[in-house]
Amino acid sequence: MENQLIISVGREFGSGGHLIAEKLSQRFGIKLYDHNFLDEIAAKHNGDIESIRKFDEAPKLRILSRTVRGYNNSPEDVVTQLQFEYMKERADAGESFVIVGRCSETVLKYHPAMISIFVLGDYDKKLERVKEKYNLSEKEAKSLMKLKDKKRKSYHNYNCDLHWGDSRLYEISINSSRLGIDETVDVLEEYINRRIGK
């Protein structure tokens, strides 16, 4: 528990936040939780992974769900709650990990081992990255970026008090376009080492 390390990485779509999280997990030798988080939840509950994935990081539509006697039937809400509970369970069990998104900076804010990071990027750099990574035209890439960020933002803002990307939520917000992915990881690694050394 003493050497426990939890790194939460929030990110703009196309900023390379996921890759940075992956590299941080390798450098610190700790587990990375992203989509695989859902596999573990599904395995724990003997649940249906495909259905769970469908409602991952999705905001609920109020008019399509109802609450009766404290039971809410929004699948988005329930999948979110399952993730929050599992996140806390892993953190409280003393596990070290890097977790991507999922409001983890807010859900695990209470935890002493927690370091929260937000990765952003310049629009044109993000656009280039998305075009290349997903093999899309400029128009398609722009629309995908808009859609993904809108979805993440509304999911975050529905579940947390502070807004997505608000600097008060994170210890460090970094623009990955300035130094590139690897040097951004170097800077973050150094910061984390200093933080855990204290």
Partner: peptide
């Protein structure tokens, strides 16, 4: 629909909590 009666809400909520979320389509 999943919201038409109280039993539907409770039943689908129990389903989802057990790791089997049920959307409108399903």
């Amino acid at each position: 629909t999943p919201i038409g009666a109280s039993a539907n809400v409770v039943g689908t909520a129990v389903c989802a909590k057990s790791g089997h979320p049920v959307g409108w389509k399903r």
